[in-house]
Amino acid sequence: MSSTDTAAYALRLGDDALVLAQRLCAWVTRAPTIEEDLALSNIALDLIGHARTLLAHSGALDGTGRTEDQLAYLRTEREFRNALLLELPNGDFAVTLARQLAYSLYARLLYGELAASADEVLAGFAVRAAKEVEYHAMHATGWTVRLARGTAESRRRMRAGLETVWPYTGELFEEDALTRRLAAAGTGVNPAGIRESWEKAVTAVLADAELAVPAPSWQASGGREGLHTEAFGALVAELQSVHRQFPGGTW
């Protein structure tokens, strides 16, 4: 297994966590209740923790010796490798929760398998991250059912949220040359291999919510090659603004 491959893989997973954390941070002081403010910011903090661990590992392995901060704050838009789902604008609370549902159920399965990785750091990371993500899945599952079975308006919004994010879920399970090499070496997880379990988990939640699983007619792709949506440039600019205005600043 080449360390360059492992570095590229850690960067993908780390960028997923980092970009979603940045999106969730925008809910601080805007969530419907104080508990929800705490919940979304705690989830964002967990994800920043995941990103820090994964980006630090990537930078140590890719031969450049870049730190987690250099990777987060000094790459350009096209150098990020997150799936497009994670960069989608927050929309209303239901859109954010639909994305949380899709991602947290995926991450729980992914990290459950990654815990057996031949890479010691990835394995140790995944054991711990799986436990944290379990709470995120519980949070998203609870809200999906609550909104779907709440009022006519909350149900309409939850359904619309799911319809908005669903075309972006397929990218999470895309295989390519990198994931095939990593899976063959036992270092990474074959994303296509967890799709069926994910669909089962999602179907169970949506059955409880009395909602149909969306069946989008198209699927977004490109994030893993650095081809992002229009909204991503503004996200990166905001994420990096302090670091770029005050290079090397410490507090």
Partner: peptide, 13 residues
């Protein structure tokens, strides 16, 4: 359990 997310990442309310 009111919320699994509290004052720090390791605490619930």
């Amino acid at each position: 359990p009111q919320s699994p997310f509290g004052a720090t990442r390791c605490q619930a309310v």
